[in-house]
Simulated assay, not measured.
Amino acid sequence: MIVSGQKEMNENPSVEAENQLDLRYQLTAEVAKGNSKAGFTVIVQDNYYGEKLPYFLELMAPEKVEPIVLTPNADVIRERECYPRKRA
Rank of each mutant, 00 (worst) to 15 (best):
M1E: 09
V3H: 08
S4I: 04
K7A: 14
K7N: 11
E8W: 12
N12G: 01
P13E: 13
V15F: 15
E16S: 04
A17M: 04
Q20N: 09
L21V: 01
L23W: 07
Q26K: 09
Q26G: 00
L27A: 02
A29G: 04
A29N: 07
A29F: 01
E30T: 09
E30L: 06
V31P: 00
A32G: 03
N35D: 11
S36R: 14
G39I: 05
V44K: 02
V44E: 03
V44L: 02
V44P: 03
Q45E: 07
D46T: 04
D46V: 00
Y48P: 00
Y48F: 14
Y48R: 03
Y48M: 03
G50A: 15
E51D: 13
P54N: 02
E58F: 01
P62S: 14
E63A: 15
E63N: 14
K64E: 14
V65G: 10
V65L: 08
I68V: 14
V69D: 02
V69W: 00
L70G: 01
T71H: 03
P72T: 06
P72I: 04
N73K: 12
A74V: 14
D75R: 15
V76I: 13
E81S: 08
C82K: 15
P84D: 04
K86V: 15
K86Y: 07
K86L: 14
R87S: 06
R87A: 05
R87W: 09
